[in-house]
Amino acid sequence: MASQGTKRSYEQMETDGERQNATEIRASVGKMIDGIGRFYIQMCTELKLSDYEGRLIQNSLTIERMVLSAFDERRNKYLEEHPSAGKDPKKTGGPIYKRVDRKWMRELVLYDKEEIRRIWRQANNGDDATAGLTHMMIWHSNLNDTTYQRTRALVRTGMDPRMCSLMQGSTLPRRSGAAGAAVKGVGTMVMELIRMIKRGINDRNFWRGENGRKTRSAYERMCNILKGKFQTAAQRAMMDQVRESRNPGNAEIEDLIFLARSALILRGSVAHKSCLPACVYGPAVASGYDFEKEGYSLVGIDPFKLLQNSQVYSLIRPNENPAHKSQLVWMACNSAAFEDLRVLSFIRGTKVSPRGKLSTRGVQIASNENMDAMESSTLELRSRYWAIRTRSGGNTNQQRASAGQISVQPAFSVQRNLPFDKPTIMAAFTGNTEGRTSDMRAEIIRMMEGAKPEEMSFQGRGVFELSDERAANPIVPSFDMSNEGSYFFGDNAEEYDN
């Protein structure tokens, strides 16, 4: 993207840094990872977990959730003011799984939030270390993106479920800051804005008074975040219109849905970061690795190297396929839920299948599930090659597409044709070009129609051997075009429920 120079890199967003050079960025990201790792080690000690239990991804998720809940100030305040039966607002906890007599047992633990905050700050040299908290939120978000298709949420806001490739980060909490905003897809931002506008339509006082002023500035800020994701002048001009509207209503909703559809071809720039579970960072720190000293990046080879040398386990339900569970977590670790499966298959070195073909449910185990038949197995999170994460949407291309997802959002900077089903997408653009945004709409449609099938995206960008740390010898991959490109292809993934 041309304006790259004016933006802070995501590592800076990730670490609240002012302008830093590459070495400083690597050190501050490393410091953040160190903090998460030290916190995780301490929690495993508190909970008396064995090494194996500490490497269980379900335990990692519970521990991450506990610290996120302990620092969720708004919710904590709300819980104190609106006490609900049987919930102690000062405590947080969740299921911890232990191996007892050759069987997995679930144990519900409860801790004072104050105590968890103390352990977290102690692991982070006394700081609140917001960057580390956001990092864990993005890992949870990436896992949700890989596990669930947001059909219901899309339909509720009037969008087409086939636009799911635009929904990265749709389950990120509001408090995820600049680093969170960077990884949100165009569809996620559109959905947040539509929800806001709908509230304004239904509630006369939404934009009024002292609160209304705050609401208005939040609305304009979200519009600017979305505008910054678009790469064409016409899309940005249309966002200006939406932002400046005196009284946002149905016309703005129409414009936003139009823009979301246009992003299936004229893709937005959305950041991709490899955020790993805390149970990967903990053992690495415990083994003596100093992330701050060595430096770390979320968008280069580092996460690949770390996963190459990590042992992570997962509980497996009786009829689940461990290899499929591994694929789910591998995609989440690489922030690749909406990437082209052919690119992923090449990088991973084994075939990556669409969601609907995987015999696996989510990673988390519900409290009512029976533990008797639970097994555990090693997650295979290694890769054959590594590639640089991208934040450009890439230019655009036609490809055989599917009944489910009709476009992709690249996660890796790797040369390819970008699949999208042009006739299906263009069919949504018939007729409606009147109104105050008509010239911009016409211009956007013209650009979409001009998108050429034979153009290559990320020209000359390749993948790298894991021994090639400096990215000196790019390998331009070859793809098996007979395979499906979309992950949520004609899909039956479970729906995400809060």
Results as ranks from 00 to 15, higher is better:
residue 4 Q to H: 08
residue 4 Q to W: 01
residue 5 G to E: 09
residue 6 T to S: 14
residue 7 K to P: 11
residue 11 E to D: 12
residue 16 D to S: 02
residue 17 G to E: 12
residue 19 R to Y: 13
residue 20 Q to Y: 09
residue 22 A to N: 00
residue 24 E to K: 02
residue 25 I to Q: 03
residue 29 V to H: 05
residue 32 M to T: 13
residue 33 I to Q: 03
residue 34 D to M: 02
residue 37 G to W: 10
residue 38 R to E: 07
residue 40 Y to V: 14
residue 44 C to T: 15
residue 49 L to S: 01
residue 53 E to R: 13
residue 55 R to A: 03
residue 56 L to P: 09
residue 59 N to P: 02
residue 59 N to D: 07
residue 59 N to C: 09
residue 61 L to N: 06
residue 62 T to F: 09
residue 64 E to G: 14
residue 66 M to F: 03
residue 66 M to T: 01
residue 67 V to M: 07
residue 68 L to D: 10
residue 69 S to M: 06
residue 70 A to L: 04
residue 70 A to W: 09
residue 72 D to W: 07
residue 73 E to D: 08
residue 74 R to S: 08
residue 74 R to Y: 08
residue 79 L to I: 13
residue 79 L to F: 10
residue 81 E to A: 02
residue 83 P to D: 04
residue 86 G to Q: 01
residue 87 K to A: 06
residue 89 P to H: 03
residue 90 K to T: 15
residue 91 K to V: 07
residue 92 T to F: 14
residue 93 G to R: 06
residue 94 G to C: 10
residue 96 I to H: 08
residue 97 Y to P: 08
residue 97 Y to S: 15
residue 98 K to P: 03
residue 99 R to V: 15
residue 101 D to S: 00
residue 102 R to K: 14
residue 102 R to W: 08
residue 103 K to W: 14
residue 103 K to A: 13
residue 104 W to P: 03
residue 106 R to D: 10
residue 106 R to V: 13
residue 107 E to L: 10
residue 109 V to T: 00
residue 109 V to N: 11
residue 110 L to A: 07
residue 111 Y to V: 00
residue 118 R to G: 05
residue 124 N to H: 00
residue 126 G to Q: 08
residue 126 G to T: 00
residue 132 G to Q: 03
residue 134 T to N: 04
residue 134 T to P: 01
residue 134 T to L: 07
residue 136 M to W: 07
residue 139 W to R: 13
residue 142 N to V: 04
residue 144 N to L: 01
residue 147 T to N: 10
residue 148 Y to W: 11
residue 155 V to L: 14
residue 163 M to S: 07
residue 166 L to I: 00
residue 173 P to W: 06
residue 174 R to N: 07
residue 178 A to V: 14
residue 178 A to K: 00
residue 179 A to P: 06
residue 182 A to P: 04
residue 183 V to L: 06
residue 184 K to N: 14
residue 185 G to C: 14
residue 186 V to Y: 09
residue 187 G to I: 14
residue 187 G to D: 13
residue 187 G to F: 08
residue 188 T to K: 01
residue 190 V to Y: 06
residue 191 M to F: 10
residue 196 M to Q: 02
residue 196 M to R: 15
residue 197 I to C: 05
residue 198 K to F: 15
residue 199 R to W: 13
residue 200 G to W: 03
residue 201 I to V: 15
residue 204 R to N: 12
residue 204 R to L: 12
residue 205 N to L: 01
residue 206 F to A: 00
residue 215 T to N: 12
residue 216 R to N: 13
residue 220 E to R: 11
residue 220 E to F: 11
residue 223 C to M: 12
residue 223 C to Q: 12
residue 229 K to V: 11
residue 235 Q to T: 11
residue 240 D to C: 08
residue 242 V to D: 13
residue 243 R to A: 00
residue 243 R to D: 05
residue 244 E to A: 01
residue 245 S to H: 08
residue 245 S to P: 01
residue 249 G to S: 10
residue 249 G to C: 03
residue 251 A to P: 12
residue 253 I to A: 01
residue 253 I to W: 10
residue 254 E to F: 12
residue 255 D to H: 07
residue 256 L to H: 09
residue 257 I to R: 06
residue 258 F to A: 01
residue 259 L to E: 08
residue 262 S to N: 10
residue 264 L to T: 07
residue 274 S to P: 14
residue 288 G to L: 10
residue 291 F to C: 08
residue 291 F to R: 04
residue 298 L to A: 13
residue 301 I to A: 15
residue 302 D to H: 04
residue 304 F to L: 09
residue 306 L to W: 11
residue 307 L to C: 15
residue 314 S to K: 12
residue 314 S to Q: 12
residue 320 E to Q: 13
residue 322 P to I: 01
residue 323 A to K: 14
residue 328 L to A: 04
residue 330 W to H: 10
residue 330 W to I: 07
residue 336 A to V: 14
residue 337 A to Y: 04
residue 337 A to M: 06
residue 341 L to K: 14
residue 341 L to P: 12
residue 342 R to C: 05
residue 342 R to K: 14
residue 343 V to G: 13
residue 344 L to E: 10
residue 344 L to W: 10
residue 345 S to Y: 10
residue 345 S to G: 12
residue 348 R to N: 08
residue 349 G to E: 14
residue 352 V to T: 08
residue 356 G to L: 06
residue 358 L to I: 02
residue 360 T to V: 00
residue 360 T to W: 10
residue 362 G to I: 11
residue 367 S to D: 07
residue 367 S to C: 02
residue 370 N to M: 05
residue 372 D to G: 12
residue 379 L to M: 15
residue 380 E to L: 08
residue 381 L to N: 10
residue 382 R to E: 09
residue 384 R to A: 04
residue 384 R to M: 03
residue 385 Y to F: 14
residue 386 W to F: 15
residue 390 T to E: 10
residue 391 R to Q: 06
residue 394 G to R: 08
residue 395 N to G: 02
residue 396 T to P: 15
residue 401 A to E: 13
residue 403 A to I: 03
residue 404 G to Q: 05
residue 404 G to S: 06
residue 407 S to G: 12
residue 410 P to F: 05
residue 413 S to G: 12
residue 416 R to D: 08
residue 421 D to M: 14
residue 421 D to H: 15
residue 423 P to E: 00
residue 427 A to W: 04
residue 428 A to R: 00
residue 430 T to V: 13
residue 431 G to N: 00
residue 437 T to R: 06
residue 437 T to W: 10
residue 438 S to D: 13
residue 439 D to G: 14
residue 444 I to Y: 07
residue 445 I to W: 07
residue 447 M to F: 15
residue 448 M to A: 14
residue 449 E to K: 04
residue 449 E to S: 01
residue 450 G to V: 14
residue 452 K to G: 15
residue 453 P to S: 15
residue 455 E to R: 15
residue 456 M to H: 02
residue 459 Q to N: 00
residue 465 E to I: 10
residue 466 L to M: 01
residue 466 L to W: 04
residue 474 P to S: 13
residue 479 F to W: 00
residue 481 M to N: 11
residue 483 N to C: 05
residue 483 N to V: 12
residue 488 F to E: 11
residue 493 A to L: 00
residue 494 E to N: 08
residue 495 E to T: 04
residue 497 D to W: 15
